[in-house]
């Protein structure tokens, strides 16, 4: 604030006054629902997951194998040349230990999340997923080898959660 300005507008409200109804408010909960088409490339990916495969797409021009797959290479701005399976193993690029749920509420058992660089994809082609079968999160290391743990075939529905999590290989 400039030292020339002496008054700063804004009336701060206390959380308690809002909760206890001492401040005029209007409440509303939207009821909006969506059904998203998975699209050209991600439909291949989701169909692959159902079969226990991780599908990437390849571009001959930049020689990248990309995961998640796309219908076009965003670097070369041309259609991809095809779809190919990559491995369900990889290395931990980065990880985190979350004690916070989506609504900012706190959880006791932390969720272990990681970016995993998949074997068979181009360097640095990581995917976001969860880690599991880890008793003490302090044993997680950067560069650790991990492998996907899949749901049983009859339980898979064609979503990213068909992979339950990735577990350490040793």
């Amino acid at each position: 604030m400039s030292e020339k300005i002496k008054h700063f507008p804004g009336e701060s409200l206390k959380g308690r006054d809002i909760r206890e109804g001492r401040v005029p408010t209007i409440k509303h909960r939207p009821n909006v629902k969506y059904l998203w088409s998975a699209g050209v490339a991600m439909s291949r990916f989701l169909e692959g997951l159902k079969k226990g495969k991780i599908v990437g797409s390849s571009c001959k021009k930049c020689q990248r194998i990309m995961v998640p797959p796309r219908a076009f290479c965003e670097e070369c701005f041309r259609p991809v040349d095809g779809y190919t399976n990559v491995k369900d193993t990889g290395t931990i690029n980065t990880y985190s230990v979350s004690y916070v749920a989506g609504d900012a509420s706190r959880i006791k058992e932390p969720i272990l999340v990681a970016v995993i660089d998949l074997d068979g994809a181009s360097k640095g082609m990581g995917i976001l997923h969860l880690l599991g079968e880890i008793d003490d999160w302090k044993t997680i290391k950067f560069g650790m080898k991990v492998k996907a743990v899949w749901k049983l075939p009859e339980e898979r529905t064609g979503t990213i959660t068909d992979i339950k999590y990735f577990k350490p290989m040793e």
């Binding site: 998640p68 989506g102 990213i160 959660t161």
Partner: peptide, 9 residues
């Protein structure tokens, strides 16, 4: 399609 089913925040 990819991220939200994982509960990403």
């Amino acid at each position: 399609i990819y991220s939200r089913p994982l509960g990403v925040t």
